[in-house]
């Protein structure tokens, strides 16, 4: 009997320790999310939020081109950014892991992610300095006489993609490097013993072994990129809006909370779909 009561008090104590964190998450994350999901089924008529349950917001999303286009823009930009970032980061991570002498690797890696620590809003602004009409690139090209007129590289999709790729190349270099460094050199030796050349070893051995790391990084890129408002707002030039920008528009000018809520749910569904597609490669490590 006494062991049971002991276990009971122990258990009560444990609940006491875990309760604050659980309650915080439920009160400020789960319930607000459910509330928002419910709100996405209401509507806004003549300045008032009407609690009549319907799917009008979701129907409007698929019917109105201006809203649906936002999701398409988001998906296109996110896919381009994810693929470009992986393609650019992989070789760099490989060079740091394979070519840079061991004692300089940590330094090389820290240098590769140093601009991470510029403020998030300022990072996009910095690209404006580089890409704008009188920015560094255009002035350099014009001084060199390569172009006569400034190139239109700021305030469009290209600028948004460049801003994003800059951020995610740093992130992916880190995750892919962490993956490459764990590989035992024996794999490469074995492949060489079996007569594979460098390219074959990479294609048939190294790449498949690092695929989980790539996919984890790519998924992270996808999630962070598709939900970002700042980079497209600063660099995108307001011609092609992405979904987060449209959400913010609903909040600002129109104060249409139910519509903003519905669009957020759609954004989340897009992320969930991406998760399901990558799930077989995503290994969440446990302690």
């Amino acid at each position: 009997m006494s062991t049971i009561t002991l276990e009971d008090t122990e258990r009560r104590k444990a609940w006491g320790f875990v309760a604050p964190a659980l309650l915080w998450t439920i009160a400020f994350f789960v319930l607000p999310f459910l509330f928002m999901a419910a709100m996405s089924l209401w509507s806004r008529e003549s300045g008032q939020i009407v609690r009549a349950w319907n799917l009008d917001n979701y129907i409007a999303f698929f019917a109105k081109d201006s809203l649906f286009k936002g999701l398409m823009n988001s998906l296109e930009i996110t896919l381009i950014v994810t693929v470009l970032s992986v393609l650019l980061a992989y070789p760099l991570a490989w060079i740091i892991a394979e070519r840079v002498p061991k004692r300089f690797q940590r330094l090389a890696l820290i240098m590769a992610v140093l601009p991470f620590w510029t403020s998030y809003v300022v990072r996009s602004y910095s690209w404006l300095l580089v890409l704008s009409k009188n920015g560094v690139i255009n002035q350099t090209l014009m001084t060199l006489g390569v172009v006569a007129e400034p190139l239109e590289i700021a305030s469009n999709r290209t600028a948004t993609v460049i801003g994003f790729v800059h951020f995610f190349v740093m992130l992916l270099t880190l995750t892919i490097y962490a993956n490459l460094i764990q590989l035992s050199p024996n794999y490469r030796r074995a492949a060489a013993d079996l007569g594979a050349n460098g390219l074959q070893t990479f294609w048939h051995v190294i790449l498949p072994l690092t695929l989980p790391g790539i996919m984890t990084g790519a998924f992270l890129t996808f999630v962070l990129c598709i939900g970002d408002y700042v980079t497209p707002q600063i660099l995108g030039g307001n011609n092609e809006l992405v979904l987060p920008q449209i959400v913010m528009l609903q909040l600002g000018r129109r104060a249409d909370f139910p519509m903003a809520a519905a669009l957020s749910i759609i954004l989340m569904l897009a992320v969930t779909a991406a998760y399901v597609l990558c799930a077989r490669w995503l290994k969440i490590e446990r302690a």
Binding site: T25, F29, F33, M36, M39, I226, V247, A260, L267
Partner: peptide, 18 residues
């Protein structure tokens, strides 16, 4: 406890704001 990590900040903010 881990769940908020998988949701965009924008959505967390919007939920709280509503």
């Amino acid at each position: 406890l881990i769940a908020p990590m998988t949701v965009s900040y924008l959505i967390i903010a919007l939920g709280l704001l509503t």
